[in-house]
Design a protein around this nucleic acid. Sequence first.
DNA 1: AATTTGTCAATTGTTGACAATTGACAAGAG
DNA 2: CTCTTGTCAATTGTCAACAATTGACAAATT
Lengths: 250, 250
Amino acid sequence: MAAPLLKLAATNDGDADGRFSPRTIPEQLAEELGADIVAGRRKAGERLIELDLAQNFGVSRGPVREALRILERRRMVDLLPRRGAYVRPLSLKSIADLFNVRLALSLLAARTMATSPVESYVETLARRCAELNEMVETGDPIAFARVTTRAVRTIAHGSDNELLLELSIDLANQTVWETIWKTPLDYLTLGVRREAADLMTETLEAIRRRDPETAVRSLRVLLENDRDRALAVLTDLRKEAGDLSAISSG
Amino acid sequence: MAAPLLKLAATNDGDADGRFSPRTIPEQLAEELGADIVAGRRKAGERLIELDLAQNFGVSRGPVREALRILERRRMVDLLPRRGAYVRPLSLKSIADLFNVRLALSLLAARTMATSPVESYVETLARRCAELNEMVETGDPIAFARVTTRAVRTIAHGSDNELLLELSIDLANQTVWETIWKTPLDYLTLGVRREAADLMTETLEAIRRRDPETAVRSLRVLLENDRDRALAVLTDLRKEAGDLSAISSG
DNA sequence: AATTTGTCAATTGTTGACAATTGACAAGAG
DNA sequence: CTCTTGTCAATTGTCAACAATTGACAAATT
């Protein structure tokens, strides 16, 4: 998925879960801290001291503690009992792992969708697909990437699998993705966009004719291409710049 | 509501295995509460009131709060801001979803293992496989099921994907499994065991000759069979008994 | 010199009190 | 009678103080 930006603040957007939860302080703290980690203002492996954070944010340690648990849940920090919280290192390898898990989940979703499709989601996917095809020529890589992400998310919804959806969102919300979002999308050339749009269309059609194997095969190629290109870009980035971000060599 | 008090002093001991777990109070609370939920002593949808829990366990609300966050992470409770914690309902559908997600992850693991195998895990898997073949005849369903689970876990390890492994363990640790574990395993007849052992062997051999497609196909059949049989048993159970457990009709 | 033991500051774990929010119920308005 | 509004108890959110543990460094021991 070359592109999933799903900013935390932007969860009201699109076909997101209709329920809106009141922003609690711990959640806001988690968001702030998470952003800091993403931006490299907190380095990988760095220890996070509760009192410092509390003073920085102008709250007491209680909410900070809860925020740290939230970040642990999002796999952004390691929480060692009695030993404190540490910014979780984010190696290229672990980013690849993340891609692969998301890929597996997406493929399961596609398979389910092609086996017992829910009409409304198929329609939504068709719309995204149409958008995608239109955007092949217009040439805005960012918009194209965003729609691709949405299409994949639609497929996750279409799985009719609550857990799968939850996990997908969880993983998508992770640090990594915002980091990846900042990478140049130059690799989304016209040819690449053409191919991606074709593959997504093929997936859609396979779903429509209830052909799981084809649906899975097409989507797999699409997502694997995307994964490989994104990883290549990230690898290059790491070579060029000194490793200031949360992405370590690992 | 009548939960036994924790024995605080006895918990800091090392484990007999040499690996000692730094059992914090919140973790213990989470474990207790989780067990209560599994056993149906806390019904699905029931509200969990912090003060009650704190008094029952003989601690203050702070640790209880953290325990609730832990259980949220394990998907055992829903945590609604300002509205309290609720025991998460566990429908048959959600159990099926869980099976499917685990299945998808296992298949990814098998694929990876067959693409770039790590010798040590292949060996371990071979041992499990041998065990399995021996146990076809001996006829202890529980032991057979356990070894099957281990074999699948070995494959998860063999994926060389930290995230996948973590998720697998997470999901495996869930309520559901302990519940499922209690179901009668009569369906593991000799024929079924024979088939399962064969499929696992086929998977192993495919991994050895680096044939991902076959490995995935075999394991898929194995796991799908298992899923369907387990779900059938659970469905029957629900029909027979009044729904006292955490498993709701959903 | 290397290892063990003792001490101490820094930090995390826990607590009880206080503030803020919610949901329910009753009183009043339309 | 139905709908709004006000009040109140129950419950969660937050805080600041206190207790317990850790890691580091120094002193003592072998």
